Amino acid sequence: MRGVLWSCLVFLLALAPLAARAESRLVDFEVASKRFDGAKVGVSPVRKVVAYLPDGYEAGSRRYPVVYFLPNLFDDQRAVFDRDGARAALDRAIDDGAVPPLILVSADFSTPAGSSFYATSPVTGDWTGFLAKDLVAAVDGRFRTLPPRPRAVCWATAWAATARSARPWSRRACSDRSTPCTPSARESACRP
Rank of each mutant, 00 (worst) to 15 (best):
A32M: 08
V123A: 15
R177C: 05
T182A: 15
D82P: 06
R171H: 00
V80R: 12
T111C: 07
G42F: 01
A20Y: 05
S7R: 06
A152L: 15
D126M: 11
F11T: 15
D84H: 13
S175T: 14
L135G: 01
P17I: 04
V99T: 07
G125P: 12
F109Q: 04
P101L: 02
V67Q: 03
S178E: 04
T128N: 07
T111Q: 08
A161F: 10
R164S: 12
F143C: 09
V136C: 08
A59D: 14
V80N: 14
R87S: 06
L70K: 08
Y68H: 11
F109P: 06
V67K: 01
F69V: 12
V50W: 05
R87H: 07
G60F: 08
A185Q: 01
C8M: 14
P168C: 08
V80M: 13
T182S: 12
V49L: 10
D82L: 13
V66C: 09
A173E: 03
T120K: 03
D76N: 13
S184R: 14
A161V: 15
S7T: 04
A88Q: 15
P45E: 05
S44G: 11
P183H: 13
L26C: 01
W159M: 13
A79M: 03
P112G: 02
D96T: 08
A173T: 09
T111F: 05
D108K: 10
A86G: 04
P150S: 13
D76T: 10
T120D: 01
A152N: 04
S121N: 00
V31I: 06
R78Y: 01
Y64T: 11
D84Q: 13
A189G: 04
W127I: 12
P148Y: 09
F81E: 03
S110P: 05
P71L: 00
E187I: 09
L9G: 12
T162S: 04
G114K: 06
F74I: 11
L9C: 13
S121M: 03
I103G: 00
Y118M: 05
C190D: 12
W159Y: 12
D37R: 10
W159Q: 10
D55M: 14
V50G: 11
F117Q: 01
P168L: 05
R149T: 07
V50Y: 08
P150F: 11
S165V: 15
F130M: 03
E23R: 07
D96Y: 06
